[in-house]
């Protein structure tokens, strides 16, 4: 897993609530047996029409908006547990998703793939959307070390919560499986009781 440090980037606004993982990556693209290549189909049915032509009004097709940060409405990632949603987001080149609220499984899947889910207050989320609206070139700085998210233009920043264990994993690029394997003896001892 790629280690996560600090990211300074422009952001892509997606002010829609309850974005489910079927939208992030529709089921018909889940037939792969590897983790690669899902980025091409990220938000496929919102991005392309039935003839496969880009839909002009969808934000990913608007060259004005670029960056490694996706900013979305509340309850992002609800629905199916498919980790393919996190793979698609990562494969597309995004490293941070910001929302006021994430669905549990998506949040876990993101963390397991080096993507940082940042939870901010609904007010702060609005401020981010406004900052992008005023200037699509606005940059934001995300520091995992300091657990802070900053709107660079105004200098306004907020802190976010992250589980200390998960933070450590992300900073070092470790995954849970390395850790669990190191606990084998205790797992076997548990099984005996």
């Amino acid at each position: 897993m790629q280690a996560f440090t600090t990211i300074k980037s422009t952001a892509i606004p997606l002010p829609i609530e309850d974005v489910d993982t079927d939208q992030i990556i529709p089921a018909r693209f889940l037939k792969a047996t590897t983790r690669e290549g899902f980025g091409d189909n990220l938000f496929c049915d919102w991005r392309f029409d039935r003839e496969g032509q880009p839909k002009k009004d969808f934000v990913l097709n608007n060259p004005t908006y670029r960056g490694e940060i996706l900013v979305a409405g509340k309850n992002f990632g609800c629905g199916s547990s498919r980790e393919h949603a996190a793979w698609a987001i990562g494969d597309y080149g995004l490293r941070v998703v910001v929302s006021s609220f994430f669905a549990d499984i998506f949040r876990g899947n993101a963390l397991n793939n080096g993507i940082l889910p940042v939870v901010v207050s609904p007010d702060f989320l609005d401020q981010i959307f406004q900052a992008i609206e005023q200037d699509p070139g606005a940059t934001f700085t995300v520091s995992l070390e300091n657990q802070s998210f900053q709107i660079d233009a105004s200098g306004t920043s907020t802190t976010f919560d992250i589980d200390p264990y998960k933070k450590n994993c992300l900073l070092k690029g470790y995954d849970d499986i390395d850790f669990l394997l190191s606990q084998k003896e205790e797992i076997e001892a548990y099984e005996k009781v």
């Binding site: 980790e83 499984i105 899947n109 793939n113």
Partner: peptide, 14 residues
């Protein structure tokens, strides 16, 4: 669970 966790459970039953 997600696929990373599927792998964890396969590897460690946890």
């Amino acid at each position: 669970i997600g696929t990373s966790q599927v792998e964890q459970v396969m590897a460690t039953q946890c």
